[in-house]
């Protein structure tokens, strides 16, 4: 059914384009027709094909949103997106099981060197990780932590909020599994590589972490900014006086961020290329920021 509607649309567009070109032949002023044929040409160039992707759960909401927008212009492309974790995504794209492998982590860190060399990296966006605390804790004065304090908290040296200017309340650490890309990023840039204490509470995904921090008064955790859009039960904490925002990430003052990668095996073609180009387009960039992801091209600093 869907397919039939799609081909009917395509047929309609083709006929429209033909009508326009015929009109162009008959009329003389060049400027108006060239505009007409251009837009028609853009529509008929709608790509056809399939895109499959799997991997990072942090990147999935963005990939889904982009797919939805992309399909409005390209109704004949079928896009299948799966989570499963960065490791799975990289493995599957290297094996050719999916077209795109989503990952928080550079391929070189998870795959054999010869496998990683076959993959092409597309840094589709930037994620900023923010330490978050329970909203009531924020109101009671925990609004800023130095890097040293963050490290002491996550390594279990500091165990009570009163030691960092908060209320007399035990600190409850809420964290992510050691294979999580979010954790890897936070550990590298916020904790300067220090290992988190093992007695912290682990949660499967950022959504659950958010819930746990909201439910426990003394809780601290960390999530990507995209999870904080429209959330009032938890509050992001400044690191060394710098608020975790997209602006501060762009200008390089806020340190805890990383690229989100979409890997393809070899240079992408057809529908896959169109989809990747769309995500990285300026047109979609505004929407991306609305969702809490950073646009790679706006970064004034870079890594690697």
């Amino acid at each position: 059914m869907k397919k039939r509607i799609g081909s009917a649309l395509l047929g309609g567009l083709l006929m429209g384009a033909m009508a326009l070109t015929m009109a162009a032949c008959s009329s003389t002023p060049a400027s108006t027709e060239s505009g007409g044929t251009d837009s028609a040409g853009g529509a008929t160039a709608a790509v056809v094909g399939t895109v499959t992707a799997s991997g990072s759960s942090a990147l999935l909401p963005l990939a889904e949103d982009a797919a939805e927008y992309f399909k409005q212009d390209n109704p004949d492309v079928s896009i299948t997106l799966n989570a499963g974790g960065s490791g799975t995504g990289l493995r599957q794209v290297a094996d050719g099981a999916v077209d795109i492998g989503n990952s928080d982590i550079a391929a070189e860190e998870r795959l054999e060197a010869d496998e990683a060399a076959q993959l092409v990296d597309h840094r589709v966006c930037v994620v900023t990780m923010a330490p978050i605390v329970n909203a009531s804790l924020y109101e009671q004065g925990v609004t800023n932590l130095t890097k040293q304090q963050l490290q002491d908290i996550f390594t279990g040296v500091i165990t009570n909020w009163s030691e960092v200017g908060g209320p007399d309340q035990n600190i409850v650490l809420i964290t992510r599994p050691s294979t999580s890309g979010t954790r890897a990023l936070f550990q590298e840039y916020a904790l300067d590589g220090k290992e988190e204490i093992t007695s912290s509470l682990e949660t499967d995904d950022s959504g659950t972490l958010l819930q746990s921090v909201a439910d426990n008064e003394g809780a601290i955790g960390y999530v990507a900014l995209s999870y904080l859009v429209n959330n009032t039960s938890v509050a992001p904490v400044a690191v060394d006086g710098v608020e975790p925002t997209l602006e501060n990430t762009y200008n390089g003052t806020y340190p805890v961020w990383g690229y989100e990668h979409m890997y393809t095996k070899g240079e992408p073609t057809g529908a896959v290329k169109a989809y990747l180009d769309f995500i990285q387009s300026e047109e979609y960039g505004a929407r991306m920021e609305e969702l809490g992801y950073g646009v790679t091209s706006k970064m004034t600093v870079s890594r690697e």
Binding site: S57, A83, G84, G85, S86, G87, T88, L90, R91, R110, L111, P177, S178, T179, S180, G181, E202, D204
Partner: peptide
Amino acid sequence: ASDMGGAMDGGEYS
């Protein structure tokens, strides 16, 4: 359940 997705296939962790 929580670590299988992120761990590299065939690696020591998985």
